[in-house]
Amino acid sequence: MKKILLSLCLIIFFFIFLKAQGKEKIQPTHASNALTKYSREFAISLLKGVDDSMYPEIFQAKMLMETIRKGRQPIKFIYEVYSKGGTKALMEIVFPARDKGKKILLTNNNLWMYIPDVSRPIRLSRNQSFMGSTFSNEDIADSTWEDDYDPSITDEKKDMLLLTLKAKRKDVAYKQIDIWVNKETKVPTEGIYFGLSSKPIKKVYFSNVKEIAGLLRPLNMKMVDLLEEGAYTDVKLLELKELQSIPDYKFDATQLGR
């Protein structure tokens, strides 16, 4: 009898423990916890490495984006991207056929959407969802973190470093981003975006690291929406070509229909 009771207690304890693990609160890391053995300069170079590992300065790419939401049909897009200097990008949907020809243009923090049947481009709000995904337009627009965030290294696990990015100004989208980065390759593996009140808003996972366009880069990215159970968007890099230049007219809002 004692053995049965003991086993029962153990089982109950195990379940309570599992539940507690599941409900573990995600807290932002305090920048004051910065590891002193890593200098600020190293943190800056690591952040630059992270930015560089994402995309080249000027590139053409093809990406697949799939958004999953509970109880809804998955939304799948394939689009071609032309990007120049992190501030100009043009995305054109090539799949599915019904959305083919739709374009999204980013120029200096302004976002425009061009729909073939509508003569004028539509201006998009930064906090709107990007094509029904868990990315917001500003997540797409702010492709480099170096200008907006102060980095520090706040934790270390084997070959991984926790890079804590603190917003430099009040007008930066997220108050803090905590991102685990491979020490050697400077490729990120996962990150958490925090709002002004230090609550986590989104989680991002990077995977399938391969050398492409001269650097090791994560080809897959998964953005998890913490506001909606089971909602996430997978982005797969299908092709990436580094380019020497892209003519400026490609990023002209008045030329989107051509």
């Binding site: 930064r126 906090n127 500003e138 917003a167 100004r169 009040k170 007008d171 930066v172 989208a173 997220y174 108050k175 975006y193 709002g195 002004l196 009140s197 609550k199 986590p200 808003i201 506001l227």
Partner: peptide, 16 residues
């Protein structure tokens, strides 16, 4: 519940 929006400086905010 959670509310999510942006501040007047366009920073994201989320609160219980």
């Amino acid at each position: 519940l959670l509310i999510y929006s942006q501040t007047q400086y366009k920073a994201n905010n989320l609160m219980d």
